[in-house]
């Protein structure tokens, strides 16, 4: 605190520059842009729908509400950068296939249609060229695994919002453990 109160000339310039910078960035902020790290808003909507298919909501929140999309997004911008390309390509392929088959986006399909679509992917039965070399199968497996990680992993990593899966499994979390008490 103390030395910060002494406003040096350099500090003053830094501050004013920051102030000006903020004006600039503030105008950037008001443009519509993705609130995600890697996904576009459209991709995130699709991810939400898939996440709910993989972990359907019942009396407990499903994949979407428990933050699976946020988990995958956070990981793709971090430890999972290597999967970025696969996601971009795979999500686009899903929407393209839905467009040709139903003239709709995946998230606009009925629940059972979505399920059937993902079952085809899982079984490696997608016909479109973009799914060649069993990309349908591997991409489905990837999303499924990542969704599970998001749902069951630590909330620190972006999923498992409000410890939902821990509570569902009745895991005591945070653990109730007293301090190592000495005998007085």
């Amino acid at each position: 605190m103390n030395n910060q109160d002494n406003l040096s000339r350099r500090r003053f310039l830094q501050l004013t520059a920051t102030g000006l910078g903020s004006i600039y960035l503030l105008s950037q902020c008001s443009q519509p842009f993705s609130k995600w790290r890697f996904f576009t808003n459209a991709e995130a909507r699709l991810m939400d729908a898939i996440a709910d298919q993989i972990i359907p909501p019942d009396e407990w929140p499903g994949g979407r509400e428990s933050g699976v999309t946020n988990f995958i997004d956070k990981q793709l911008a971090g430890p999972y950068v290597r999967y970025q390309e696969e996601y971009r390509k795979g999500l686009l392929a899903i929407q393209n296939s839905c467009e040709t088959r139903f003239r709709k986006k995946f998230e606009e399909l009925k629940w059972d249609e979505q399920t059937a679509f993902l079952e085809l992917m899982e079984a490696g039965k997608m016909k479109e060229a973009s799914w060649k070399d069993e990309f349908d199968k591997t991409f489905f497996a990837l999303i499924r695994d990542h969704s599970m990680q998001g749902y069951y992993g630590s909330p620190r990593h972006g999923g498992n919002k409000n410890n939902v899966s821990y509570r569902m499994l009745q895991l005591d979390y945070p653990l109730i453990i007293g301090q190592n008490r000495y005998k007085s």
Binding site: D5, R11, Q14, T18, A77
Partner: peptide, 23 residues
């Protein structure tokens, strides 16, 4: 509360550019 918090806001702008996010 002094320039302390201004610095925080400034850092937010910097983080913004560096793609650090909400949570």
């Amino acid at each position: 509360n002094g320039f302390h918090s201004l610095k925080e806001k400034g850092m937010m702008v910097v983080n913004h550019a560096k793609q650090d996010f909400a949570d």
